[in-house]
Every structure is written in C-alpha cells, then in structure tokens.
Design a protein around this nucleic acid. Structure first.
Lengths: 221, 221
DNA sequence: CGTGATATTGAATATCCTCAAGATTTGTGG
DNA sequence: CCACAAATCTTGAGGATATTCAATATCACG
C-alpha cells in the first residue's frame, strides 16, 4: 500500500488504452501551479514523478495544504466546474494531464474506471480522516512525527529521503508555524530520532521511538 | 446543495429498485453505534433522519469526529474489510442498512451507482478539505462560527435549529476542549450573534456578522 | 423532585505563536 | 569553481491563545 500503481494498471485493457490516448505528458518545476482554487477546473492529472500539493487558503491569506500526491496518484475533480483547491508542484514533477470533459466521458463509457476512481476516492477519504485526527488532536511534536512517518511510508524509501516540502509548507500541512516546525525537528534531532542533512534531507534513525513518540495514529502511519 | 437527496433519487430506476430491495430500515437512539473502528466492516448505510457521527480515536483515548452525516447521505466503505472509523448516532436517528458485500455486487452490476457514489465521495473530499482548513488555520472563535454556519446550511432550517452534538463532541469536531467551546459560544452570545436556549437549542441572530467573524471559509459555509 | 449528565466559569499553566535577529543553504552568474 | 545574493532555516524572548483542573450551575429524565 505504500506506492500507488498507476491508474492504467488498475483498470481493464480497453479502459487503460482509452485513458492512455487522452494523456498529455507535462513537466513542472517546483512552485508551478496546475489548478487555481476558485478558477476553471479544466484538467485531471496522474502523477508520474515528484510530489504535488493541493492547498486551500482563507481570504486573509492563511493557507492549508490539504493533500499531498505522489507517483501513481490520480488527482482531480470530474463533474466540477471550478477547482476547489489549488494544485501545484511541491518538487520538480512529471505528470499526465487529461482534459476534464474527456475524463467525464470516459467515466460514463468505462464503468471499471468509475469504480477504480471511486475506490481511490474512498482511500483518500480514509487518509484524510487520519490527517484530521492529527490536526485536531495531536500536539506539535506528534504532528511532526506523524508527518515524517507518513512520508517515509509514501516514499517507500527506507529510512532516508528528501523532504518534498519547505518548513513553512510542513507547517501549512500540520497547522503549525515555520518556527514550531523547525523547533520540533530540532528536538527530534537532539533526541537522536532523526537527522536533517542539508535543508531537505531527512533520515529516520529510530523509527520505533519516533512512532512511539507520535502517540500513534497507526492507521495513518 | 444544502439537503442531500436520497441515493435512490440520484440513480436510474433499475439501480434504485435494486438498492431498495437490499435495504433494512433501522432505528437508533443517541449514542448507539453501527460500526466500530478497526472491527469488521459489515454494512453501509443511508441516513433517513437524524445525524450520524464518524469518529476516530488515538490509542490513548483522544477522539476526533471526522464526519457528520445528515439525511440523504450514504455512509460506508465498500471494498474494505475493516471499518476505518466508528459510526454512531449523534441524535436519535433512522437509516437504511445495506450489507457491504451486497453493495459491492450492486456497484459492479450498476455502473450508474458507482458513478453516483464516486461523485458523492468527491463532494465529501471537498467538504473535508474545508474542515482541514478550519482545523489547521482557524482560531477557536472562527472554528465555532464555521461549525454553526455549516450546521445551519446542512439543516436548511433557517436560523434556528437544535445542535446535534454536545459541547464535548463539538470540541471533538473542531479540535477544542469542552471548556473552550463553552467559552466561545458564550462570547458569541454576549456579542448578540447567537442564542443558545436550553442545552441543544441554537439561534443565529446575525448571520452576516457571524460569517464575517468566521474569517470565511466561504466555500465551506 | 432528585439524580446523573452536561454545561459554565475561573484561575493557573502549558503550548504555540509572533516578531526579530542571525545562520545556513541553495542557486546563479561570473 | 568561486563568490555573492536570495531563499530558507534556526533560535530566542515575550506574549497570546487554548488547556487543565476544579468548583458550581443547569438541564433532562425518570
């Protein structure tokens, strides 16, 4: 369950072929935006490499990252005229783009596709439930731990990987400020649970202790 | 968009008939539980009356309410062996129950059903995105305001309705403690924006001012 | 009318934020 | 390959917000 297989691998041959015909491969540099919250919802995408971030903002500029999407994830909202969230590249990324109306047609013609996307939507809901528990009921140190363990799981990269987000963005995910994120990472470093080589590097030195400190959300980790 | 039409009204005749054949009508008293987090996931349900609450808990007993479900909502996780959340009655409630395997069969046989449930799952994701912004980036007073406006919208009951949750449960929704919930409601009462007759009553006296104070999340309200 | 559950309120405290200064890292152009 | 500039990160001090704990009040129900 750590790495999502691409959508094409999860639907029968004809649906996969139809989907492949619609795809346009695109590349993004970190920071590039595909969808803007509130504006026209023109495309759905399938992540090929890198990490995409879905975010929402309040009128006065406070921002929350409401989803991170990794290789294999299908991201988008068929049947919606306007984008409910902004979608941009957290890291340099590559993805396949599908026009939204074409996806909608495909959904009607290929029932297997609708069912597969329904399953994935349910998985995403489960995942978000986990985030909500973290956001509402964990303290800063636990939030950071949950987040790091979640990343390790999604990357399936053993104990060492690059953080796809800046400290400020991690704060936007967890409902913290950049200062608190930095302080809590420093605390984990001092406790010998992690290392943070460079700005983006992250090494989990003691996963068990980190999980224990996280107070769980084991379903989420 | 305030009140969800029942699933049967949103799919073609044959699918609706097939669904109706599977339904078992059930009644719940406040507090009764249908699904237990981590245990067997045996049923999906359609809410007929009252409010259901979906919740998750940490090992040490902290609880988060991750969803509220009103009349017309379809709640459940086809294709999952274990329940990812507990589901119980926030108020006395009535619902139609469907065995999970039967729902899965129906999904395969009735593509329209899969598509309708997919749409609803997407709506729920949008809704949860809104909650995540509230949880992560709003302060207590704003959270309470967002919550009350959200309820008013879902109930479609004008300016006056009964709270389906206790103060403690509202805290579990918003990531607050019972004390803070009570204090913030008192502040809104003192400011003349709401009234709270009895323990469950709620009257919105000045919706515009309440919305302004909420700092928005207008998509969510 | 009494009892248990729920809600209110206060005082003290812990947590996290704000603001700010300084340090590090990354990336760019020479 | 180096130097410099911009971005990002770290850390501290003080303060705001929400929590904890506890006492009291109110409500719902039998």
């Amino acid at each position: 369950m750590t790495v999502t297989p691409p959508l094409e691998a999860c639907v029968p041959r004809p649906a996969a072929a139809a989907l492949a015909r619609l795809a346009h491969v695109r590349h993004l540099a970190r920071g590039d935006t595909i969808l803007f919250e509130g504006l026209a919802n023109q495309v759905c995408v399938s992540v090929a490499a890198g990490v995409l971030r879905a975010s929402k903002a309040t009128e006065d500029g406070r921002e929350a990252i409401v989803g991170l999407h990794f290789a294999g994830d299908f991201v988008g909202r068929p049947f919606a005229a306007h984008a409910a969230f902004s979608l941009s590249a957290a890291t340099d990324a590559e993805f396949r783009s599908y026009s939204r109306p074409a996806v909608e047609t495909l959904l009607r013609e290929q029932p297997d596709m609708a069912q597969e996307l329904y399953r994935r939507a349910l998985d995403e809901i489960d995942n978000m439930h986990g985030w909500m528990l973290v956001l509402g009921r964990q303290v800063a140190g636990e939030k950071i731990g949950s987040f790091l363990l979640h990343l390790a799981r999604r990357f399936d990269a053993g104990e060492s990987f690059d953080l796809p987000l800046t400290r400020a963005e991690i704060g936007d995910v967890l409902g913290l400020t950049i200062g608190t994120v930095s302080r809590e990472l420093a605390a984990l470093r001092r406790a010998g649970l992690i290392d943070t080589p460079g700005q983006r590097g992250l090494v989990i030195r003691d996963r068990a202790a980190l999980a224990a400190r996280t107070g769980l959300a084991s379903a989420f980790v």
